[in-house]
Design a protein around this nucleic acid. Structure first.
Lengths: 199, 199
DNA sequence: ATAAATGGTGAACAATGTTAATATTTTTTA
DNA sequence: TAAAAAATATTAACATTGTTCACCATTTAT
C-alpha cells in the first residue's frame, strides 16, 4: 500500500514528467530546461531538485513512457497487415513515422548524452533492445512458417536495427535526404533490403 | 596571389582550427568551448570572433580536414586487399575503426546540431556523400566485374551507409554492445549482411 | 608626426544548471 | 488550539558557456 505522502510525492513527480514530455514532443529536447519545465509543471525551478537528482534523470524517466506509446502506435498501425513480412514492414514504417513526427524523442532515444553512465546503462540497454521487441513477433512468425531460419532472422533483426537508426539519424540530424518524400522512398528501399533474406 | 594581410589572417585562423581539431580528437566535442580553444590557440576568447562568425562555424570547418584524414586512413588500411568485396570490407572496417578511435569526430559528423541550417546544408550533404565516396571505387569495380548490377550496387551502398551510421551511433552513444570485442563481432556481421548482394 | 585603420582584449550580459539559505506551509504535539 | 517541528517551496546566488561591445595598443597611411 502507498501512504498519502508517497501518493502526493508521486503526483508532483508526475507533473514534472508530464511537463517534460509535452516539451519534448512539442519543442524538442533543446527546449527542455530546468526553468521552462518547472514553470510548465507549476513550480519554481528549484523545486525540481526536490524530486529529481537533476534534469537528466527527469528527461530519461520519459523514455519508458515514450517506448510504450511508440510500441502502441506501431502495433496500431499494423493491425490490418498479415503477420510476417507484410506486418513487419508496416511496423518498421510506423516506427520510422513515429520518430520523424517527434524528432525530439528520437534525440532522446539515440542522441542525447547519458551523463551518468553507470546509472543510465539499463536505459541504454532498454533502448537497444526496444527495436528487437517490436520486430520479434514477426520474425518468430517467419521462422515458424519456414520462411527463414533462426540465423537469418537474427541477421535481419540486426540489419533492421542498425540501418533504421542510421536512416533516422541522417534524416533528423543531417536533413539527408532533404525532402520528406525522398526520405520515405529511401526508407522504403532500405526496409526492403533488410528484409531480403526472407523467402 | 595572396596579400600579406590575407596570409596573416589565414595563419591565425589556422591556429584556431588546429586548436579545435586537437581538442576534438583528444577530449571530444564537449570539451570544445570558446575559452579553451582560444587559450590553446594563444589568443583571448574574444579574438575568436574576429576570425569566425561563431564557435559553430569554427567547429564545422574541421569537418573537411577530418574527412581527408579518414579517407586517407581507410585507403591506407586497405592497400593490400584485393579490389572488390575484400577491399570494400577492409575499408568499411577501417572507417568504423576511425570513428571508434575518435568518438568526438563521429559526434561532429553525425550528431552535433547544425545551428544555422541554411549555411550548413553543404556540410550536411558532404557528410552524407562521404561514405559513398569511400565505397565508390569498389562498387564500380564489382559492377565492371559482373559481380552485381548497378541497381544492386546502389542498394548495397545505401544499406552500408545507413547501417554503419546506426552501428556507430549505438556503440558510441549508447555503449551497445557494451564490450568492444562484441561490437567488432557485430560490426563484422553487419558488413557481411550489407555485402550479401554481391555474387 | 599625426591621423586613421586594424587587431586584440577585458568587461559585461544572457542563458542554463545547480546549490544553499530562507521563507512558507503543513504536521505534530503539548 | 497554539507553539514547535518537519516538510516543502522559493529566492538568491554562483558557475559555466556563448556572445557582444567599448576600449586600448599597434600598425599603417598621410
Amino acid at each position: 500500500m502507498v501512504s498519502n505522502k508517497e501518493l502526493q510525492e508521486s503526483r508532483i513527480r508526475g507533473y514534472f514528467i508530464e511537463a517534460t514530455k509535452e516539451t519534448l514532443k512539442g519543442e524538442g529536447l533543446r527546449a527542455v530546461n530546468v526553468r521552462a519545465v518547472s514553470e510548465r509543471a507549476g513550480y519554481s525551478f528549484a523545486t525540481l531538485y526536490n524530486y529529481f537528482k537533476d534534469l537528466n534523470e527527469l528527461v530519461f524517466i520519459c523514455v519508458q513512457d515514450f517506448m510504450n506509446e511508440c510500441e502502441g502506435f506501431t502495433v496500431g498501425q499494423s493491425v490490418n497487415a498479415r503477420p510476417g513480412k507484410e506486418r513487419l514492414k508496416a511496423r518498421m514504417k510506423a516506427y520510422i513515422g513515429y520518430f520523424t513526427q517527434y524528432p525530439g524523442i528520437f534525440e532522446l532515444f539515440y542522441i542525447e548524452r547519458m551523463n551518468d553512465l553507470g546509472a543510465r546503462q539499463p536505459t541504454a540497454r532498454m533502448i537497444y533492445e526496444f527495436t528487437d521487441r517490436i520486430i520479434h513477433d514477426d520474425l518468430t512468425h517467419l521462422i515458424d512458417n519456414g520462411d527463414m531460419n533462426r540465423e537469418q532472422a537474427e541477421l535481419t533483426g540486426l540489419n533492421l536495427k542498425n540501418s533504421i537508426a542510421g536512416l533516422l539519424l541522417l534524416f533528423n540530424n543531417r536533413l539527408q535526404p532533404a525532402e520528406y518524400l525522398d526520405f520515405l522512398a529511401v526508407a522504403d528501399k532500405q526496409i526492403d533490403i533488410s528484409l531480403s533474406l526472407i523467402k
